[in-house]
Design a protein around this nucleic acid. Structure first.
Length: 910
RNA sequence: GGGCGGUUGGCGCAGAGGUAGCGCACUUCCCUGACACGGAAGGGGUCACUGGUUCGAAUCCAGUAUCGCCCACCA
């Protein structure tokens, strides 16, 4: 058994500063930690000894605000705790630079856009440099190859990464900076492509030509997870379709511009109003196209007129009707959101063709106006359009409602169409430990509500390309049914510049040759693989495989609650399909940061706080304290007051420890003359009061450990903190005179054993508290640690305290002794406070009444109480007789009589 | 419309069956040999509301209100 295990602490004491403070600690220790590599993953090859974290990669082109600081601190507290528990913590950092925000930024910054038909140009120089803020118009943008674009992206985001890294370091995140990645880099691209090829080989990825949600601004298909419902102003138009004989039947629509795309009128099969018409034909107004009246249960009787026109495609219900009733496809919206450029052949009526011609190339908005005017003129509009608010699907990054467009897209199975897989993924959700647990239902709701597989292809240019080509037939047609895939060891590839095995570049886009898949993968198709990326999944090297074995499945995924449906779910889907397990065993979900007016902080509201400011103003420990005091999953208010408290705690720790270390050792200037060694042995703690403190400490260690084990960092902090303040306010005050070892007010000098007991207790407890606070206040605790353990390594690699040695040394002493002694001291202080005199004023005599259960406790600490209260004469204890009427606040102890001496004379001057 | 979370002194939060707790702010006092970036003492709440269970309810149950979020609703 080592000395440490027995609770004996051997300290190498460093000289102490005259004055202590928290300013400047960040810089000092950041540099030291970097130099010594405390946070480096030690590459332990044993999975059980490793704690691995799937850190969220922040969007680097995004803006920093205190929300980042908040959730990353929560993770860091856990990382530090696990490290001190002896785990080899694998804590990498990623940067998300894949996707639209970066694409737009690179376009505007350098004046370039991706053209996948171009070849990589190693000598390419962008036309602009550093034009942030100014937008370069599309016609001035120079087309570049995808690889060139990726390089520019890496160049640009390198700056942003530095900014983030500087923030994370100044916040004291214990990230292993040798383990970083960015989502558009070679390695993540290789992982994304490899995983896709394996999905494809197993039949989990497939392509399909189908109607799907489409963003007309970005001109790309959009997945269910990226939808956002927003309120949208619309108008109900009551429009007449007519039977052969001219009898009208009215429908209501908010999208009259789609009239030409109508394929049927649909009512509910039970709707008595329309049952008699089922199977009959009517003619659409203006275009005079014959459409049937059909029944389908998805029609809702109480919505609109109860009968709807089905267009291809106005909304997702239209798609359902079109599919179930086998309606003709009559698309009139182009991918840019405008009406098609030629009159469709199903419109045969001359008047109808002329009206359609007027709408060609128009936006849906302008086309609607033309159609409504024509309807009004034709007498087929009943009344005027009535305004309505409706919820419509938007792409979360877009500002126009989504259209439905038919296109060939790639899908990945996610349980949206397969009941068995759906059940399996729900089971994975039950296996995963959510912190807090109630977040689990969000996952469940999402998986249960899926209505289709995951659409992973995007018609964009910047991103991870599908590693695919297609054969081109003799007739020059692309044969999508037989994609050509590269060997895994060639990855990452770009099909627009790389050539499939067995072909020559000259055969590109030629009959009997090949053609590249033009689409790229959704950014989540890469992000969903961060566990595989950071753990070097499927990399062939021996080192890589060892790393993967030691770190996967990972231990923790920290993330925002808003991306449960995207990041969390898609990661589980990928790991389930690829690895047959959960990607991690725990997930922590942080809440939002609200501004002081309880509004969510967001860039658009302009209420964000840049995190450097509070760090500079209050110190990193203080900001971390604020973040740590919020529970997971609950929103927290941005509260500088809380940071002040954190700062106060850090300063107090410095001062209290300085006192404990200096006492009995300092020269006349309160310096420890030279660095010295000392030993704090729990066996030297003999005084009941001191033992009571150790008993309390053992309990606190136990509680804090349990709280952190269950990811309740705020509870752990609160437990340790309140013990710490109690220790400072009561124990230090009670014991300090004994610890000094000088004569007390009555002229008695404590014996050596009593002095040693106090000093040992001070040392042991503060050393343990330093460890307990280290995950929360890494800077102040490191500073203090170095005073105690000069040259013996960092507190952040020190062992997490165990309760046993302390509870053993307490010898069964009840920790409430400290509470009783503290109460007695408070009573003495109150005498002086009420008399409005200095605490230095001696008490000539005092008599305390104590409840029977506390009398023995107070008696055993009586010397310390008397000394701390400066009682120079008699301190008598009387057992309190239970009183008939209980006082409003009964502490079990009160002053019966007291006599104060003269307050000490004020020092002249100052 | 379905679901989740919150509602506790002026503010920020803890407490989850035994009669309300912490911090900030506030009041008064104190420059005491760790700390004035400090210390001591104190005032302040019918725990959103209404019912119920219980000897006893901030705490459990039912419902209401209110704030926030997630999902659904697109004729």
């Amino acid at each position: 058994m080592s000395a440490e295990n027995q609770g004996i602490v051997n300290a190498s004491l460093a000289p102490l500063p005259d004055r202590v403070g928290v300013d400047g600690l960040e810089e000092k220790w950041c540099q030291d930690w970097e130099r010594s590599g405390v946070y480096h993953f030690r590459n332990t090859r044993d999975r059980r000894s490793v704690y691995s974290i799937d850190t969220p990669p922040p969007t680097v082109s995004g803006h920093l605000h205190v929300g980042h600081v908040f959730s990353y601190t929560h993770t860091d507290v856990i990382a530090r705790f696990k490290r001190m528990q002896g785990y080899d913590v694998f804590y990498p950092m990623g940067w998300d630079d894949n996707g639209l925000p970066t694409e737009r930024r690179v376009q505007n910054y350098y004046g370039v856009r991706v053209d996948t038909s171009l070849k990589y140009d190693p000598d390419f120089k962008p036309p602009f440099h550093g034009t942030d803020g100014k937008k370069i118009s599309a016609k001035d943008q120079v087309p570049v190859s995808r690889q060139n674009f990726i390089e520019l992206c890496e160049e640009l985001t390198a700056e942003d990464e530095k900014l983030f890294e500087r923030l994370w370091r100044s916040l004291g995140l214990s990230i292993d900076w040798s383990q970083t990645y960015h989502t558009i880099g070679d390695h993540p691209r290789r992982v994304a492509q490899k995983a896709f090829l394996r999905n494809l080989a197993r039949g989990e990825a497939y392509q399909q030509e189908a109607p799907g949600l489409w963003d007309v601004t970005f001109q790309t298909a959009v997945a269910q997870a990226e939808l956002e419902s927003r309120e949208y102003d619309g108008f109900y138009h009551r429009v007449a379709f007519r039977f052969q004989d001219g009898t009208p039947i009215y429908i209501e629509t908010t999208r009259p511009e789609l009239l030409a795309a109508c394929g049927a009128l649909i009512a509910h099969p039970d709707d008595e109003r329309y049952q008699k018409y089922f199977g009959q034909k009517v003619y659409s107004p203006l275009f005079k196209v014959e459409v049937p009246i059909l029944a389908h249960p998805a029609a809702e009787m109480d919505k609109g007129a109860g009968i709807a026109m089905c267009c291809t495609f106005g909304d997702v219900t239209d798609v359902q009707w079109w599919r179930d009733l086998k309606l003709p496809t009559r698309s009139i919206i182009q991918r840019n959101g405008r009406i098609i450029m030629s009159v469709p052949d199903w419109i045969t009526d001359q008047g109808g063709r002329e009206i359609f011609e007027q709408t060609e190339g128009k936006t849906t908005f302008s086309a609607r106006k033309i159609v409504v005017d024509a309807l009004r003129e034709a007498g087929d509009l009943d009344g005027e359009p009535k305004p309505t608010k409706r919820m419509t699907n938007f792409y979360e990054k877009g500002d126009k409602p989504l259209e439905i467009v038919t296109s060939r897209q790639w899908y990945l199975c996610n349980g949206g169409t397969d009941r068995k897989l759906n059940q399996e993924l729900l089971e994975r959700g039950r296996e995963l430990d959510f912190h807090p647990d109630f977040m689990r239902v969000r996952y469940k709701n999402w998986v249960e509500g899926l209505n289709g597989d995951w659409l992973i292809s995007r018609q964009r240019f910047f991103g991870v390309p599908f590693p695919l080509w297609y054969p081109v037939t003799e007739e020059g047609e692309t044969d999508y049914a037989h994609p050509i895939t590269p060997a895994e060891d060639r990855l990452p590839i770009d099909p627009s510049t790389d050539v499939p095995e067995g072909f020559e570049e000259s055969q590109r886009d030629q009959p009997n040759g090949f053609t590249a898949e033009k689409d790229i993968m959704d950014t989540w198709a890469t992000s969903s693989l961060t566990p595989q990326i950071v753990t070097h999944w499927a990399e062939p090297g021996e080192e890589d495989q060892a790393l993967f074995k030691a770190t996967f499945p990972m231990d923790l995924r920290p993330q925002g609650q808003d991306i449960i449906r995207t990041w969390l779910f898609s990661s589980i889907d990928r790991a389930h399909l690829e690895n047959g397990c959960l990607p991690w065993s725990n997930t922590t979900l942080s809440g939002w940061i609200l501004d002081p007016d309880h509004k969510k902080m967001s860039k658009s509201k302009g209420n964000v706080v840049v995190p450097d400011e509070p760090i500079r103003k209050y110190g990193a420990d203080a900001v971390r304290y604020w973040a740590s005091s919020a529970r997971l999953g609950l929103d927290a208010t941005y509260d500088e007051g809380q940071m002040k408290i954190g700062r106060r705690l850090a300063v107090k720790l410095l001062n209290a420890t300085k006192f404990a270390l200096a006492i009995g050792r300092e020269d006349e200037n309160h310096h420890v003359a030279d660095s010295a060694r000392t030993t704090w042995d729990p066996a030297d703690v003999t005084v009941p009061l001191d033992r009571a403190v150790l008993a309390g400490l053992a309990r606190v260690i136990d509680q804090a450990t349990q709280a952190l084990e269950s990811y309740e960092h705020s509870k752990a902090l609160e437990t340790v903190e309140s013990f710490f303040w109690d220790f400072c306010d009561n124990y230090i005050e009670l014991s300090k005179n004994r610890a000094y070892g000088t004569a007390d007010a009555t002229g008695r000098t404590p014996d050596r054993g009593q002095v040693l007991s106090a000093r040992t207790t001070l040392g042991l407890v503060l050393e343990a508290l330093d460890r307990l606070l280290a995950p929360f206040l890494p800077f102040a605790t490191e500073e203090v640690w170095q005073w105690m353990h000069q040259g013996e390594g960092s507190v952040h690699r020190a062992s997490w305290p165990l309760p046993d040695a302390f509870s053993q040394a307490a010898q069964g002493q009840d920790p409430s002794l400290l509470t009783w002694a503290g109460t007695a001291l408070a009573a003495l202080r109150r005498i002086k406070s009420e008399a409005k005199v200095s605490m230095k004023t001696p008490i000539l005599s005092v008599s305390l009444a104590v409840a029977p259960e506390g009398k023995e406790a107070v008696r055993s600490a009586l010397d310390d109480v008397a000394e701390a209260g400066r009682v120079t004469g008699d301190l008598t204890l009387v057992e309190e007789t239970p009183r008939a009427e209980a006082t409003e606040e009964d502490t079990g102890l009160h002053v019966i009589a007291s006599q104060l001496g003269e307050p000490p004379a004020k020092k002249p001057g100052k």
